[in-house]
Design a protein around this nucleic acid. Structure first.
Length: 284
DNA sequence: CTTACGGCCTGGGTGC
DNA sequence: TGCACCCAGGCCGTAA
């Protein structure tokens, strides 16, 4: 669920309350989604949270150790499909599947809840942090049009796969790729290298438009997603194709179709987003 | 370089 | 009501 707009919304929420706070203690439930649970329990208590950032779909908390030591490290959090991170008073009801509790020096608590535990939590020093975040591709909201077009034009894979590939663009997931391709009127099976410069420019604007609007509406809540205050987003009301199979296209009225592209459920308008003609060479 | 597939987990919806 | 089955916003590793 959590793609760039959802993670950005959570990051902004946490940024309003966490910087400057000190972590007093840590309590863990199930830990199979945590890289090194012992390290979390050992190193987090006493640290101060300096900054909250988003990198693609990762949340990054910059930490500083208690004893003024220059050692800086980061807590990386990936929400996977069903991860939620909220701040609340310690006496608040504990949601099922809550596996991390951080007690803060202002009396509040940070909790991580994850039904499917596809998320990931790791505590990383600067060098290993680079190993995780370094390989990620362009931020779709920071990239220039030229950078964006060059990246996609250089690849022969399907555009749907490219938009989803975190090493090409960081932050897009299944919902926002489908919404973006619909807005740009590009079929998900088109190959990156076959897109015209006009189509690439349309795609660039569509990505930014969709993501910006989704952030403004605080993300999409389909089933599990809530922000750091436990509130759902509103962008699901603006979905034009995602999970609208059989419904009419908002632009042309044709029936929205669903197909498997790059192994993922993909929704598109067969009229607005014309399918590429497979150019097979035939013998004879 | 690219695609396909299975696996990691739990829960919700559907159809019998 | 129960139960089998399919599907789900992500991502990794393996094989072809």
């Amino acid at each position: 669920m959590p793609e760039l707009p959802e993670v950005e919304t959570v990051a902004r929420g946490l940024r309003a309350v966490l910087p400057g706070r000190r972590i007093l203690s840590v309590r863990l439930g199930k830990t199979d989604f945590i890289d090194d649970p012992a390290a979390i329990e050992q190193h987090l208590p006493g640290t101060r949270i300096n900054e909250v950032r988003r990198h693609g779909k990762f949340l990054v908390l910059d930490l500083e150790s208690a004893n003024g030591g220059a050692r800086s490290f980061a807590l990386l959090i990936h929400l996977g499909m069903t991860g939620q991170i909220v701040t609340c008073p310690p006496e608040a009801r504990v949601a099922p599947h809550t596996h991390v509790f951080l007690a803060l020096d202002d009396g509040r608590e940070v909790r991580y809840t994850d039904i499917r535990r596809f998320g990931r939590i790791a505590i990383l020093a600067d060098d290993s942090r680079e190993k995780v975040l370094g390989p990620l591709g362009l931020d779709p909201l920071e990239a220039t049009e030229n950078e964006f077009c060059a990246q996609l034009h250089a690849r022969r894979a399907r555009i749907k796969a490219l938009l989803l590939d975190q090493h090409v663009l960081r932050g897009m997931g299944n919902i926002y790729t489908d919404e973006t391709l619909w807005r740009a009127r590009i079929h998900p099976m088109r190959l990156g290298a076959n897109l015209t410069s006009g189509e690439l420019r349309r795609l660039y604007r569509a990505v930014r438009g969709v993501l910006t609007e989704a952030i403004r509406l605080r993300g999409s809540s389909i089933s599990d997603y809530v922000d750091s205050e436990g509130q759902p987003g509103q962008f699901q009301r603006r979905h034009r194709v995602y999970q609208r199979e059989g419904k009419r296209c908002f632009r042309c009225g044709a029936s929205i179709r669903r197909a498997l592209v790059a192994g993922r459920s993909s929704y598109f308008c067969p009229r607005c987003q014309p399918a590429p003609r497979p150019r097979r060479r035939r013998s004879r």
